[in-house]
């Protein structure tokens, strides 16, 4: 356990050295702040940006606070996932290429603790970033649009975070498996896009889909309660996450491909 914490601390040291600890949360806070502000100023932005004929009337109702928060979630689901996957795509594979991994594993540390330390730090950082971003969005939504219960925010973020947890785990899994960081990002993004696109299209067959968790969180924001399947996707997501983490942690043969 002590060795695991040494690896864990080394991971945080590295993430603060390349500023990931600062810029990833800041990006999420920025997107979180922008969403309520653009929703609030949207009528004005349209008035100034488009050259409509005189007398044209645009009436856009200001969305409810729950809708704005669901939009923020949608923003996180596109830009946020892109940023997280690109930031963590090389988490194992780049160390494998640079020889760092070999240097660490000659010491008496297990391959699985090496992977789980990396996984844990990536999960904690992205979880913190999403939480801070949603909190910032919640604060601005309250200021500009209207009140929203704090507990619903916490519940929504927790649900959404499980989907992110799944994607981060998949990134770490692929990164320990593939040599090219670019391929890791491409496959993970493909998976996330396919799941988010197919889930609403094939509702009947995709009830298990981890992407349902995003919909559950969004419906919690807009309707105040979770609509649609929730327990089945939660269970499959947790199982898949555990499976990918296990597979990532037990792949010792990747060492042989080093040379």
């Amino acid at each position: 356990m002590k060795k695991w914490f040494v690896l864990f601390r080394k991971e945080w040291l590295e993430m603060s050295r390349n500023y990931k600890v600062i810029w990833i949360p800041l990006v999420f806070v920025l997107f979180g702040l922008l969403q309520p502000v653009t929703s609030y100023y949207m009528p004005e932005i349209l008035k100034n940006a488009s050259n409509l004929p005189k007398g044209a009337v645009i009436k856009i109702p200001i969305p409810s606070s729950g809708e704005v928060l669901a939009q923020t979630l949608g923003q996180f689901n596109q830009m946020g996932i892109l940023v997280l996957v690109l930031a963590f795509m090389g988490i194992v594979s780049s160390e494998q290429r640079s020889g760092m991994m070999k240097a660490i594993l000659v010491k008496p540390v297990g391959y699985s603790s090496y992977i789980t330390a990396k996984w844990m730090s990536a999960v904690l950082l992205s979880g913190g970033a999403i939480f801070l971003g949603m909190l910032a969005s919640w604060y601005y939504t309250i200021l500009l649009i209207g009140d929203f219960p704090f507990m619903d925010i916490v519940k929504g973020i927790s649900l959404y975070f499980i989907w992110i947890l799944f994607l981060i785990t998949f990134t770490v899994f692929l990164s320990s498996f593939l040599k090219s960081s670019g391929l890791v990002a491409a496959f993970t993004l493909l998976l996330s896009i396919l799941l988010t696109l197919l889930t609403p299209l094939l509702k009947k067959w995709m009830e298990w889909s981890p992407a349902q968790l995003t919909n559950a969180a969004a419906s919690l924001f807009t309707a105040g309660k979770i609509e649609g399947p929730f327990l089945i996707p939660l269970i499959t997501t947790v199982i898949l996450t555990a499976l990918f983490l296990y597979l990532a942690g037990t792949r010792k043969s990747s060492l042989s491909r080093l040379g």
Partner: peptide, 16 residues
């Protein structure tokens, strides 16, 4: 309202 957004952008710029 807009100042925090600009501040975050400036911080990101400086770090980069």
């Amino acid at each position: 309202l807009v100042a925090p957004i600009i501040a975050i952008q400036v911080i990101l710029m400086i770090i980069a």
